[in-house]
Design a binder for these strands. Structure first.
Lengths: 216, 216
DNA sequence: GAATGTGAACTTTTTCACAGCG
DNA sequence: CGCTGTGAAAAAGTTCACATTC
């Protein structure tokens, strides 16, 4: 575990290792080798070993990695061993679909609030386990009260920057941005972007539509 | 434009350039320099120039890049200058939310079919501009008839691999996978993955939750 | 024997810095 | 001038190959 020279790609792969390890666990595998883990993710065994070794010595020569142990270690590294409260901002089609997604809590992310600025969508019923939709005016107070760390931004592109500004001012610590814009945020502020069109374009390119654009 | 040594990261950034260029165009900018484009995306000017130069000579010394022209060139490179038919497979919360998303067509992707295997969701009304939900049994025939190239996979994790197999057999040429699993696909088959939990984990890590996992 | 962790070699990607053009 | 395109240098990331451990 070299102190502070961990390649960003290695950190991205860490999440994939975790996901694959959980799949192996579900299949009742107790141990897994770097070769097997790599095969499932289309990576080399050396890559897997090096990535994991950045963070510690988790393997056992001759055996491989113990699935259960490694899951716990990787979660600790990612900081998802402890639950983290999140919110959704923007209750349009996508926001509401994500609100209904039950997969967050399994991964340690607890959805505790949803915000929108449309008065017709507000619904502060504290009933059942349905999460109420609150007005944007309550953002700062709620972020503070419920200790919300991350927010998923699901507003239209036109509103995204302004809403992001509000979120940061309200004390949100990281943004998962679904709006198709590059957000301007303070230096080092954590943002991850998911842009459907960008992903489709990457596929389009690989379709061989990748004309090398006969120049001039 | 070196024939075939284009870095994958450069290709990923191409989509971001396009998105940013369209934002500049909306703001009535006619030209943009590599410095300005880079600033908006937190990249260096050299990076922007080198990326674009892989594909041709699009810039004008002393001037920069003409926004409109560069948009057209980048679209051509990505293959999105011509429309591409896409479909959504899995009409759950997320699939239906994406079905309602109007942003695809602006980017050259035409959503022409939605599939699900739940008989209660099927709805073959050829009415209005609402896209009917077809049964999975019609997949191959429809892919062929409507010349569908790409599919967005929105089924639960447990079903994802099997449905992906069906899609590939039906002639789909690339998959945008929203299921939280690594799909096994033929070598070189284009897959892009969007896993919400993975993105949240990356943010979690950057929150400083990144315990360096004090080993042993 | 099987499989890790790791320094060293190699490859890829980014940055630098500058000639050359409008 | 201002700004591109690009070789050359530097940095980052990946793969190799092997000593080492169980």
């Amino acid at each position: 575990m070299k102190s502070e020279n961990i390649p960003a790609p290695a950190i991205r792969r860490l999440s994939l290792y975790l996901r694959q390890l959980e799949a192996f666990r579900k299949a009742d595998r107790r141990t897994v080798s770097s070769k097997q883990l790599g095969e499932a993710l289309k990576l080399t065994d050396a890559q897997v070993r090096k990535d994991l070794a950045y963070f510690g010595q988790f393997g056992h020569p001759g055996i491989g990695y113990r699935v259960e142990d490694l899951i716990n270690q990787v979660k600790k590294i990612l900081g998802t061993d402890k639950p983290c409260n999140i919110s959704i901002v923007g209750a349009g089609h996508l926001g509401q679909a994500l609100t209904g997604y039950r997969g967050f809590s399994k991964k340690g992310f607890q959805l505790v609030a949803v915000f929108d600025n449309d008065p017709n969508k507000i619904n502060t019923s504290e009933s059942a386990d349905a999460i109420p939709i609150q007005p944007m005016t309550e953002l700062a107070e709620t972020v503070d009260r419920l200790e919300i760390r991350l927010a998923i931004l699901c507003v239209p592109a036109e509103a995204a920057q302004q809403v992001a500004d509000e979120m940061i001012k309200a004390g949100i610590r990281g943004i998962l941005n679904f709006a198709p814009v590059s957000l301007a945020v303070p230096d080092g502020f954590p943002v991850a972007g998911v842009d459907l069109a960008v992903q489709l374009e990457q596929l389009s390119f690989r379709l061989g539509g990748g004309t090398t654009a006969e120049a001039i």
